[in-house]
């Protein structure tokens, strides 16, 4: 596992030390404990089918959380991703069901439409919050409503259905029991990991999250870096929309309600600081898996819906408290 970059304020390429390992393995240990617990207490948890299920179930949240990591790293937040996903899905749904296209063209058009919708929404979020230095909380809250309204308006509040068969196949395709859509999400994690750890852009995003002014005074175009972070987040919302459509073969304008909170939870459980500048996308991956394992495992365990909701809440709080102690340990 790439624990050396997990959680460090910025990539420290000086090899593994025990301290670094201790700082970073908390979230991994928590996940391991959950997996062991559910494997022992439930019959079906550790079966190939169920693992496939979990991977499918976390895919959308993981894609959204990868984009969210960029925004949270610069000290922002994006509350609009759930709505933007629905908006992108509806726009793409309209595109894919347009008459006069072959399957391949229709699918390509839909993927293009979904990602462009996401990118444009993210671009707007980024420009509006960076140009006027407004809290992204409020700008993206506005976008949450704009995108949801847009999705309902365009679809007339109707579920869009009957997509090409090939699209559906992609949504349910497997490689050795691993859903292809999950592999797509994993590819995004890897790309994000590379960007954040090995590029100037990634380095400066961490810098902006820690001390925006210092980065600006060092001559870097902070404005565009911030816009880029939000645009990436929008892009992942568009990609999540494609995954949603491929998996369920419909576009629903009421899809994704509350998804932004799940994505934020995955990022925070993964150890990224809400105030920015500290965290990693590998942590986000583990955070998304924890949320998925919990949702799945607690059903298998036979817990009621309401208890399940309570326990998920408790886990989020415990994760943040653990992170507090990890940060203190790190500073000593």
């Amino acid at each position: 596992m790439t624990t050396d970059t997990l959680k460090s304020a910025a990539p420290a390429r000086e090899g593994l030390s025990l301290r670094v390992l201790m700082q970073n393995s908390g979230i991994g240990l928590a996940l391991l404990a959950l997996i062991i617990f559910f494997s022992v207490t439930t019959e079906h948890f550790l079966t190939p089918n169920n693992i496939t299920n979990i991977l499918t179930q976390i895919t959308i949240n993981l894609v959204l959380a990868v984009g969210m990591t960029f925004v949270i790293l610069i000290g922002g937040i994006d509350l609009s991703v759930g709505s933007v996903m629905a908006f992108a899905a509806v726009v793409a749904g309209k595109a894919i069901t347009m008459p006069g296209f072959g399957d391949a063209e229709a699918i390509a058009l839909a993927i293009f439409a979904a990602t462009m919708t996401g990118v444009l929404c993210g671009l707007f979020n980024g420009i509006a919050s960076a140009f006027w230095s407004l809290p992204s909380f409020i700008i993206t809250l506005g976008m949450l409503n704009i995108a949801r309204g847009g999705a309902l308006q365009i679809s007339g509040a109707q579920t869009i259905y009957s997509f090409p068969f090939a699209f559906e196949e992609f949504g349910s395709a497997m490689v050795y029991g691993v859903p292809v859509v999950f592999l797509v999400a994993l590819l995004f994690v890897l790309i994000a990991w590379f960007i954040l750890n090995f590029t100037v852009f990634g380095r400066l995003l961490y810098g902006i999250g820690n001390n925006e002014e210092a980065v600006r005074l060092a001559g870097h175009p902070v404005f565009w870096y911030k816009v880029a972070a939000f645009t990436i987040c929008g892009l992942t919302a568009g990609v999540a929309a494609v995954v949603y459509m491929a998996r369920l073969n419909i576009s629903s304008p009421i899809a994704g309600i509350g998804f932004e909170l799940n994505a934020i939870a995955a990022v925070i459980i993964g150890g990224t600081s809400l105030s920015g500048g500290r965290g990693s996308v590998i942590g986000t991956l583990l955070g998304a898996i924890i949320i998925g394992v919990l949702a799945n495992g607690l059903i298998l365990y036979g817990l009621s819906d309401f208890m399940r909701q309570m326990i998920t809440g408790v886990v989020i709080i415990v994760a943040v408290i653990l992170d507090y102690y990890r940060a203190r340990f790190a500073s000593k």
Binding site: A9, A10, V200, G207, N210, N211, A214, V215, A218, R278
Partner: peptide, 28 residues
């Protein structure tokens, strides 16, 4: 507040204004 990114490594701070010198096509 303006000079350093306190939580980041010494190396990252020293190179902050010289990103071009320590990267090639945007890769560190």
């Amino acid at each position: 507040d303006e000079g350093l990114i306190l939580d980041m490594p010494i190396a990252a701070n020293a190179s902050l204004a010289s990103m071009k010198a320590v990267s090639r096509s945007g890769i560190l």
